[in-house]
Design a protein around this nucleic acid. Structure first.
Lengths: 274, 274
DNA sequence: GGAGCGCTGTATCTTATGTTACGTATTTTG
DNA sequence: CAAAATACGTAACATAAGATACAGCGCTCC
């Protein structure tokens, strides 16, 4: 079983002529980046001519050079997306509690690695400035996240609404939305048409959209002002929303901090109502 | 000091027009591989036109697309060669995000450290054996978790009900509950009296209770057959339910695996209903 | 030592990629 | 609300990339 191109090469390097072997060695030495550059650069680095490089990739079984590059990229993508943080982070006692947990922790690290302070601060600021109303909605599995966020935000500021129930109900709420308002949408695979249509209409009305989605980006990203892409892959039949959940909590915390003064009073008032 | 292109982007993403922002978001979401592909592929992935991609890289300060790609490759090369640099987002070593994330990750490790495989398996088995009905309910902030779990369980097996709405409504549902049934309750501080009363009554009727709570244990623990205690402390004004969320997802996965055969057919049937 | 085979590089060709110009649509500003 | 400015996409262009044909050279085997 040969899974990586590197293995494929070391498997066949014995049967290669001298020039192609140099190509193979050069590629292995700086794997896989040289393979992503142009044939000319690759050939120069290996000290052979362009056709030799092409014969080399052809011998590996690829039809042409771009196909070879795509294979390298896919391999790299897989590597980057499930980081070897297990080897780097022996924090968890190798009890191997659950691959599920490990994957989830990885997802969170990766999600936040692609998420800058700046970006979160911008979104938090937008949610905190109370020029208009805040609406939240989610898909089949992610609507609970919208509810969770709404439950918190509604406490520290007014005019926070979770859109629930039948499609026709929240679609009618569009009438209340305008330029000053913010719409927070949660949408991961499989993306829901109804949500996309809803987002599009809201966007046309000038509503600013904050989208929580997965790394493949819901089509709603087209209309979104801010996009948060969370990793969702776990060894399970379902995708995981845990990373998005944590981002949501982080955002809630940031907004709360920004509204410190206001929200403190508001919370006291609410307590009084009990 | 800007060292990586990702930082550069998140630094300027605020000042970009819509189309270029989509390009930026797409790149960040699958960083950096899309940037290594052709302009055409990049533009297709982002849902914009090729010139927009070029204007985007131009705005980042690159003379042309190849130069931009080279920069990405160099960055990738450095990353691959020194795996230690694969730490968290170096952009925010001491930002507002990290403490929150770190605390959350710690919470999860701690939560699972006190949670044996055996315990999870027992609960999953109980949820999977379909002798009776499964009810789920949560408190003010945790009800979304109950919804999330219900949304998944309801797909792989029948007779799963989330108790929502006014207290009087779900209190009346007690009439339907008996010895064969399971009640999953989420309750963290500040514990809700209504939930405690509800749990007590259910317990008296012989319902088996699975409790998700925080490390200080809701009073409901008295009546619960299984107790899952998650860490909730984070540097924020709010408690974090993230650890409980991950446990819930793990359980969902475990139950799904146990019902593999049945649920697969059920899911196919459901798809057919669309 | 000579003939045959195979590997390699130069030069040419073709493809498709990045680039640019321009008209339209959209947003912003007075 | 109007006008200006900006942004976006379509389409044509130039360039640089990968692919191919062919000739030279070295090696091996008779």
């Amino acid at each position: 079983m040969i899974s990586s191109i590197a293995e494929l090469i070391s498997d066949r390097i014995g049967t290669m002529p001298a020039g192609e072997r140099r190509a193979a060695q050069t590629l292995i030495a700086n794997y896989p980046l040289i393979g992503l550059k142009t044939v000319a650069e690759f050939s120069a680095a290996a000290g052979v001519s362009s056709p030799t490089i092409l014969r080399f990739v052809s011998r590996l079984g690829f039809q042409n050079y771009p196909e070879f590059q795509s294979a390298l990229q896919d391999e790299l993508a897989a590597q980057l997306q499930s980081p070897a943080s297990r080897t780097l982070n022996p924090a968890s006692p190798s009890g191997a509690i659950s691959p599920m947990l490990e994957a989830t922790l990885d997802n969170m690290r990766e999600t936040f690695r692609h998420l800058s302070d700046r970006q979160l601060a911008d979104i938090a600021a937008r949610l905190a400035e109370r020029r208009g109303k805040t609406f939240l909605i989610g898909g089949r599995f992610t609507d609970p996240l919208a509810r969770y966020m709404a439950a918190h935000l509604a406490i520290i500021q007014p005019d926070v609404y979770h859109l629930a129930g039948q499609e026709s109900i929240w679609r009618d709420r569009l009438i209340d939305m305008g330029k000053r308002d913010v719409l927070v949408i949660f949408d991961i695979r499989r993306y829901q048409d109804s949500l996309v249509r809803f987002a599009e209409t809201a966007h046309q009305r000038g509503v600013q959209i904050v989208l929580f989605t997965d790394q493949w980006l819901s089509p709603i990203a087209r209309f979104a002002r801010h996009v948060i892409a969370g990793r969702t892959a776990v060894p399970s039949a379902w995708d995981s929303s845990a990373a998005l959940f944590v981002v949501a909590e982080t955002l809630i915390g940031a907004v709360t901090r920004q509204l410190e003064a206001d929200s403190a009073k508001r919370i006291r008032d609410l307590e009084g109502l009990r």
